[in-house]
C-alpha cells in the first residue's frame, strides 16, 4: 500500500495522471515488470510499462500507450518519471 501511494504520487507529478492500477509481474527473482494504468483529468486512459532489475538497480522503459483501441498510440518515455521511480523503488 505504501508503495502504491508513493508511485501514485510520482504518477500524479510526472504524468499528470491518477494511478488506477499497478500490476507487478515477477519474471524471476531479479526482474519485475511494472504496469501502471492511469487516467488524466479528461479521463483518457494510459498504460506505462517498465522493467526493474534489482541486482543491477536498473530500470528500463518498455512502452507507454493510450489504451483505448479507437485512438491507441505509442507515447513517449517520460525520463523524469523513470528517474523518480528508480529513486523511489531502490530506496523502499
Amino acid at each position: 500500500m505504501e508503495k502504491f501511494d508513493g508511485i501514485s504520487t510520482i504518477t500524479e507529478k510526472f504524468l499528470n495522471g491518477h494511478l488506477d492500477n499497478m500490476q507487478l509481474d515477477y519474471i524471476d527473482e531479479n526482474e519485475i515488470i511494472i504496469v501502471l494504468t492511469y487516467h488524466d483529468k479528461f479521463q483518457y486512459e494510459y498504460c506505462y510499462k517498465l522493467a526493474v532489475r534489482k541486482d543491477e538497480k536498473d530500470i528500463e522503459f518498455i512502452t507507454h500507450t493510450s489504451t483505448n483501441m479507437r485512438y491507441k498510440s505509442k507515447l513517449n518515455d517520460n525520463e523524469n518519471l523513470d528517474k523518480a521511480l528508480s529513486d523511489f523503488l531502490f530506496v523502499h
Binding site: 483518457y44 493510450s66 498510440s73 513517449n76
Partner: peptide, 24 residues
C-alpha cells in the same frame, strides 16, 4: 482522431489553455 494529439501532448509535455481545451 485523438491519437496524434495525445502523442504530441505527451511527447512535448504541453501545458496551457490550448492543451486543456483540445483534449476534452
Amino acid at each position: 482522431a485523438p491519437a496524434p494529439i495525445m502523442m504530441i501532448i505527451k511527447k512535448y509535455r504541453t501545458k496551457g489553455e490550448l492543451t486543456d481545451t483540445i483534449l476534452p
